Simulated scan of single mutants.
Amino acid sequence: MRADVHVEEAGEHGPLLLCLHGIGSSSVAFAPQLAELSPYVRVVAWDAPGYAASPDPEAPLTLDDFADAAAAVIRERATSAHVLGVSWGGVIALRLATRHPELVDSLVVADSSPGSGTDATKAAGMRARAGELAELGPRAFAEARGPRLVSPGAPDALVRRVVDTMAASVRLPGYAYAAESMAAADLRAELPSIAAPSLVLCGDQDTVTGVEASQEIAGTLRRTAFVIVKDAGHLANQEQPGRFNAWLLSHLRITARIPEQELSPCL
């Protein structure tokens, strides 16, 4: 399987870091990671199938299909990768680690959950989103949902960037396939089988998936550390990129054996 997706890449040396965005976003969400981590690792951020600059899928995609597409991105560039997934991207990353464990050197799961299928109400709400997008259109849909993804104290410029990114990234049918993949997902039984060392992060003001969902992931994985990112909502990697990247680089120093002297002095 080839990865028929658009990616943004930065960095020429070091291990591969694959970045998987949330359900209402795109590779643009990882601008702070592409800019700040590229001196240490090769950063690849995708537009998931059916999102932003990636073509629409020819048939419906399941969570397994999204994970297989991510696996193809890795195989085209390396023998394995460290994988960062935010929200829905974290769910894909976790499934990738169970379906293709040989490809995952380590996991970083941010502001995510074991899937919306853990709760019937959450699953129904997730499935309803495709209809909302069809009714409202991408811009109005983004204006309604985007501000919820950051903390109340987030700068206006960040809120606008989040809304603009969502409006430019989501469309049908890709968003509907993504929403169904989340609605059907309940990864709780498979999390203990993941052997890759993992870092789980969550913004302290995340009201979308919430701290409890991230704690559940961290408490179930076999080899993990759990970090609360202060003054951040659901998009901690964008709202507090300095703190987020510092923890991520510390994780990579251990799991990828990046020499400590190569890291930023702020660490």
Rank of each mutant, 00 (worst) to 15 (best):
L37P: 03
C19R: 04
E8S: 13
E8R: 15
A10W: 02
G11L: 06
S26D: 11
S38V: 04
G11T: 01
S26C: 07
V41L: 12
L34K: 02
L17R: 11
H21P: 06
A29Q: 10
H6F: 15
S26L: 11
E12S: 15
P32G: 05
H6W: 15
L16C: 10
L37T: 09
V28C: 07
S27F: 10
L17P: 00
S25W: 02
A35T: 11
G14A: 10
C19W: 02
S27C: 13
L20W: 08
A10V: 05
I23K: 02
E9Q: 15
E8N: 12
G11M: 09
H13A: 15
E12R: 15
A10Y: 08
F30K: 06
L37M: 14
Q33D: 08
A10P: 02
A29L: 10
S26G: 08
G22A: 09
L34S: 09
P32E: 09
G11R: 04
H13P: 00
L17M: 09
Q33K: 07
P15G: 12
G24H: 02
V41M: 06
S38H: 15
V7K: 08
L20G: 05
L18A: 04
E36H: 13
S27N: 13
H6T: 13
G24P: 03
P32N: 10
P39E: 10
A35W: 00
A29C: 00
P39V: 09
V7Y: 06
G11Y: 05
I23R: 03
P39L: 07
V41Q: 01
P32C: 08
E9C: 10
H21E: 01
E36M: 11
I23S: 12
E8L: 14
A31F: 12
S25Y: 00
V41S: 03
E8Y: 02
P15V: 04
A35L: 07
A29Y: 00
S25G: 05
L34M: 06
Y40W: 15
C19G: 04
H13W: 01
A35V: 11
L37F: 12
L18Y: 03
L17E: 04
L16A: 13
L17D: 08
E8G: 01
E12F: 05
G24T: 14
G14P: 04
H6G: 11
S26Q: 07
E9H: 14
G11H: 01
V28P: 00
V41G: 00
H13G: 04
P32L: 10
I23H: 03
V28S: 11
F30S: 07
H13N: 09
P39F: 12
Q33Y: 01
I23C: 02
E12G: 14
Y40D: 10
P15M: 06
L37A: 13
A35H: 10
Q33W: 08
A35F: 06
L34D: 06
S27R: 14
